[in-house]
């Protein structure tokens, strides 16, 4: 079953074309890693999938165009973890997680037993039980990230979109987060996570989608996407690739060319 289908999706921000003609399908049970260099359009793609920014082409959510869904209905089908870990007020961690249940709850109603169970499960999954009564503004960056991911988990949707969820987490919490996302997918949900850590992407994702300058340049199993040629062409890095316990290991080692030769040349040209 497909969760999400993009057909010829293009996005322009101002006069810049950020995404051009993307076709992508995310099925139930898939953990799709969205990878690509800085500025490739990963966050824009995730925001466009949510319907947060206007896009041309089609974005279908289980057969319905995302744009046609009422915001409340969409919130019961897609949850989103933003890259910015913003928490505005010193409310308790538990309360932030409970926000995820507000999409089901009528105004003024108390949390149901099911709501509480989902909140507890999200808190347990993200290992934040010890923090639950702390003001969320007092937490470290990594702790905040886990709280905000728990909020999205509590939303209990068939599709989760996460924008760099592992950034700022320690290795243990990176691994537990990826394994949690993998278990969501194993439960029959669709998960799309943008990632910079190619090692985590290779290890945990069922499929990788590589974006470069607003286009999908590779889409498939980690072994098919993360080849020395592709890493050299898109990232400009040389990497050590090997297999361990049946999984792919990727460790970028050195630069093949300056990180962004075009822009370097342009700057040099402008200065000259």
């Amino acid at each position: 079953m497909t969760c999400l289908t993009l057909e010829d999706l293009s996005v322009s921000l101002g006069r810049t074309q950020v995404l051009s003609g993307l076709d992508l399908t995310v099925g139930a049970g898939e953990l799709v890693g969205l990878i690509g260099p800085n500025g490739a359009g990963k966050s824009t793609l995730i925001r466009a999938m949510m319907g947060l920014i206007p896009a041309r082409g089609r974005c279908l959510l289980g057969g319905d165009p995302v744009a046609s869904l009422r915001p409340g209905e969409r919130a019961r089908r897609i949850s989103y973890v933003a890259q910015e870990r913003e928490i505005g007020w010193p409310v308790t961690v538990e309360r932030i997680v409970a926000l995820g249940r507000d999409v089901y709850r009528k105004a003024g109603r108390a949390l149901s037993a099911h709501d509480r169970a989902m909140i507890e499960s999200a808190i347990a999954h993200m290992d934040i039980a010890a923090l639950r009564h702390r003001p969320a503004t007092d937490l470290s960056g990594g702790e905040r990230a886990r709280v905000l991911i728990a909020r999205a988990l509590a939303q209990d949707t068939p599709l989760m979109l996460a924008d760099e969820p592992t950034a700022g987490l320690d290795p243990a919490h990176q691994i537990s987060l990826m394994s949690m996302l993998a278990s969501l997918a194993a439960d029959g949900r669709g998960v799309v996570a943008s990632l910079h850590d190619l090692g985590l992407a290779a290890r945990w994702c069922t499929r990788l989608v590589l974006l470069d300058r607003g286009r999908i340049v590779a889409d498939g199993a980690p072994e098919a996407v993360l080849t020395p040629e592709v890493l050299a062409r898109v990232y400009g890095v040389k990497a050590h690739l090997s297999h361990h316990d049946g999984g792919l290991i990727v460790q970028p080692l050195s630069l093949i060319r300056p990180a962004s030769p075009d822009s370097h040349a342009a700057v040099a040209g402008a200065r000259g």
Binding site: P71, R74, E84, L99
Partner: peptide, 20 residues
Amino acid sequence: GRALDALSVGDDTAASMGVN
């Protein structure tokens, strides 16, 4: 009230929770 609660975790996240 509820929209402001949702906005405490940022505009985009609030929008993802159905807040206009």
